[in-house]
């Protein structure tokens, strides 16, 4: 093809694209409005990551300058940051260890229920707490577990002991965060497992019965084996979100138990919003975002390896 023809071809292509756009003006209008929102409220803020490399917030506005990686070196020299990092991993790990298997167990038990009225009622009840805000969940458990005027106080009175103030106790706060998380979300988490159990071919069970498999063997070799891919994907996704621990901790904890419950995001909130150390808090956020993104990409890559299908 000669250059002249190529130019013509390119022009024709451009014209075609332009015609396509003009033909669908309405469509483009919609796209532009929506994408304008993304530009202003998602991507423009993202450009501010450079703050992490400046001393903004520590000096007068006229003296702001780039300080390289100073904020990041500072992170690891500060005990509060190390503590928040450790707490984030520790609480998230506890939540996965104790909270991840529970929806699977609930789903298996629900599947074994044959009276559909009872089964549906229980499902209705255990899905519900997921839709309550952390504030309401917190309010309920603060009221029940309050050291005065509460069932908790009544219980300790019965034992003849001084009531424990659970929410203000370093010893129990992490346990409470894990328990309330399970209380609120484990029931809702069963939905996806129940759906994938339903999609298992019933012929497999019949064949297994003919082969003389008992119920435990059926559960292990057919049900659990059948939902294994879903379990793996969800576990990997969960690991990818380890650092996102925030809203629950922000709502449910008080400064009294900060030593054991301060996490990266609450630390970023205190340094960034309350103390206005913008550069430093941005470094905390960027560190969190970078580790979080690598965890997500890594876990998605593993998911692809496992199931030949990523999440994104």
């Amino acid at each position: 093809m000669s250059t002249e023809l190529m130019v013509l071809d390119l022009r024709a292509k451009r014209k075609k694209l332009w015609e396509k756009i003009m033909l669908r003006r309405g469509l483009m209008g919609m796209l532009i409005i929506g994408m304008a929102w993304y530009l202003v409220f998602e991507f423009y803020p993202m450009t501010k990551v450079y703050w992490a490399f400046t001393n903004i917030g520590q000096v007068a506005p006229s003296k702001i300058s780039f300080v390289g990686l100073a904020n990041f070196f500072k992170l690891f020299s500060i005990a509060q940051f190390r503590r928040a990092l450790w707490n984030t991993f520790y609480i998230s790990f506890l939540k996965i260890l104790l909270g991840f298997p529970i929806p699977i167990i609930y789903a298996l038990l629900l599947t074994e229920m044959r009276i559909s009225f009872v089964k549906r009622s229980i499902q209705t009840i255990i899905y519900a707490p997921h839709f309550l805000s952390w504030v309401v969940v917190g309010a309920i458990w603060y009221i029940i577990l309050s050291p005065i005027n509460s069932p908790n106080a009544q219980f300790f009175e019965f034992l003849g002991k001084k009531p424990i103030f659970w929410w203000a106790s370093d010893r129990y706060i992490r346990g409470l965060l894990v328990t309330t998380d399970i209380w609120r979300n484990a029931g809702y988490g069963t939905i996806i497992y129940l759906a994938s159990i339903m999609s298992i071919d019933p012929n497999l069970y019949e064949a297994a019965i003919i082969d003389g498999a008992n119920r435990w063997q059926q559960t292990w070799h057919i049900t659990l084996a059948g939902i294994k891919p879903v379990i793996i994907i969800l576990l990997i996704l969960r690991i990818g979100k380890i650092l996102n621990l925030f809203k629950q901790v922000f709502v449910l904890t008080t400064p009294i138990v900060r030593t054991l419950s301060d996490v990266l995001m609450t630390y970023a909130y205190r340094t960034g919003i309350q103390q206005m150390q913008i550069g430093y808090a941005m470094a905390v956020s960027l560190f969190k975002a970078a580790v979080g993104l690598s965890l997500v990409l890594l876990s998605n890559w593993i998911a692809k390896k496992v199931k030949e299908e990523g999440v994104f």
Binding site: Y44, P45, K48, V49, G272, I273, I278, M282, S285, G292
Partner: peptide, 17 residues
């Protein structure tokens, strides 16, 4: 769109915006 799910740089820049 997917990018905004994967990358979450936190509330600070949005707050200042």
């Amino acid at each position: 769109v997917v990018l905004t799910i994967m990358i979450n740089i936190g509330f600070l820049p949005k707050y200042l915006l």
